[in-house]
């Protein structure tokens, strides 16, 4: 009975992921991606990863998707008539993707069923358990993550600002008369 629920949720996930790739309007793709992220969060929760499921919704479906929709609407993207997903290249690519999915799925299934599964320890997947691993064994990596985010913030600001030379012409001008006054 519970397997039936898995197949329903998995089918919805695959349908939403296909929507991301196939829908011609980028806004529809983004909304389809939000649905995919929520469904993946449900899969996380059913695998006892409760904190990661909550983070998935807050970080991905919240922050990252808002950024995507913001950029799509800022650039005012319309549905592109040239973007027809149904041509020869797309058909070949879809066939190749299907073949790779079949092979990868078979290998993963064999990998997932080999040997006996471990008994889950008490409190597996809770915030406490994740924090214990994160701050005892991966402290350096955690601190480096803050450096990565700092670099990303600075990089995003530098990349997204207007052309430096255009932006700085106006503030520089009032400085010049001061220099000539000093010389005079």
């Amino acid at each position: 009975m519970s397997e039936l629920w898995f197949y329903i949720l998995a089918g919805m996930t695959v349908a939403a992921a296909t929507g991301v790739v196939m829908l011609p309007n980028p806004v529809h793709s983004a909304l389809s991606l939000v649905a995919t992220l929520f469904l993946v969060a449900i899969h996380y929760a059913s695998l006892d990863a409760h904190l990661v499921a909550a983070l998935q919704i807050i970080v991905y479906a919240g922050a990252i998707m808002v950024l995507f929709l913001f950029v799509i609407m800022l650039l005012n993207l319309q549905t592109d008539p040239d973007e027809s997903p149904m041509n020869a290249t797309a058909a070949i690519a879809a066939g190749a993707a299907l073949a790779i999915a079949a092979v990868l799925g078979r290998v993963f299934y064999a990998f997932g069923t080999s040997g006996a599964g471990a008994e889950l320890p008490e409190g597996f997947g809770t915030t406490k358990a994740l924090a214990r691993v994160l701050f005892r064994e991966h402290t350096v990596a955690f601190e480096l993550t803050s450096l990565l985010l700092l670099v990303a913030v600075v990089g995003a600001v530098v990349l997204a600002q207007r052309d430096k030379h255009d932006a700085r012409v106006e503030p520089v001008e009032p400085v010049e008369p001061v220099e000539t006054e000093g010389q005079g």
């Binding site: 790739v21 899969h43 695998l47 993707a97 999915a101 799925g105 993963f108």
Partner: peptide
């Protein structure tokens, strides 16, 4: 089962 699902999503 979840591993197979992840393989399918990756290929999409």
């Amino acid at each position: 089962h979840y591993l197979v699902l992840s393989a399918i999503i990756f290929c999409i």
